[in-house]
Design a protein around this nucleic acid. Structure first.
Lengths: 117, 117
DNA sequence: TTCGTGAATCGTCGATAAGCGATAGGGACC
DNA sequence: GGTCCCTATCGCTTATCGACGATTCACGAA
């Protein structure tokens, strides 16, 4: 299996994700609020683009269900998709998860002031 | 207003939270998947115990709704409650949020291996 | 143009979540 | 006991989620 013609995982050129407000934190939390979606994100730890069919095979769920989970992750900007001919490649937006982590850290740290809208 | 007879925010003596599996990550994500609950956690950044009534006044939601949100946070072990006479004090379980953050970091880091059940 | 393949969307269903008012329970205090 | 205060729980309605099969759409290849 070769990944030669696949797009890269770089986030360069993607639109800026929304700033970390209370609503945005909740949005990402919701995207990560289902075991299947956590599992999908964990699959993406290995940094190369993933096809939908690969994920379906890993997760033991119907293709339409996986597609729906990917849509939720995509709309929360946790992953991004790029078309390559007939198929879609998915990659993590690591920067978004990093910002989420930072926000949760600030949320629970006692000595940093954070003004959340 | 005095906090003199309030219990402390220490987590000492509390039962160990569940280990960080995929299901546990999703559970905490779900607890943080609502703006009101993120807001509540953010209130708790200031490290002293909070009464339910204080939170109600901050959040502009019915007392029963806040009580329900607190139940969800409590069952996910994101906060803990202690009774003091007629009232209940709530505090953050910072250690749980720290572990959650660590799990999300590992989830998205490309070089750490994590075996999630 | 037609066919095949991979992925998204639609339609439907049961289950779960979110919100509120009303009610119940548990202390403290008289 | 009775009363007040604070919080949890109940009962209800509406909204959203999660899952699936069926269908549609987009693209490349024949």
């Amino acid at each position: 299996m070769t990944f030669a013609p696949t797009p890269s995982c770089t986030e360069a050129g993607l639109p800026e994700p929304a700033p970390m407000t209370v609503a945005r934190i909740a949005e990402i939390g919701k995207a990560l609020a289902h075991p299947a979606r956590v599992r999908i994100v964990n699959l993406f730890r290995i940094c190369h683009p993933h096809k939908v069919q690969d994920i379906v095979e890993e997760c033991d769920l119907a293709q339409s269900t996986i597609s729906e989970h990917l849509r939720i992750l995509r709309e929360a900007d946790v992953v991004f998709a790029s078309r390559d001919g007939p198929r879609t490649w998915y990659c993590l937006r690591r920067s978004v998860l990093r910002e989420y982590v930072k926000a949760i850290e600030e949320l629970q740290s006692t000595d940093e002031l954070l003004l959340l809208a």
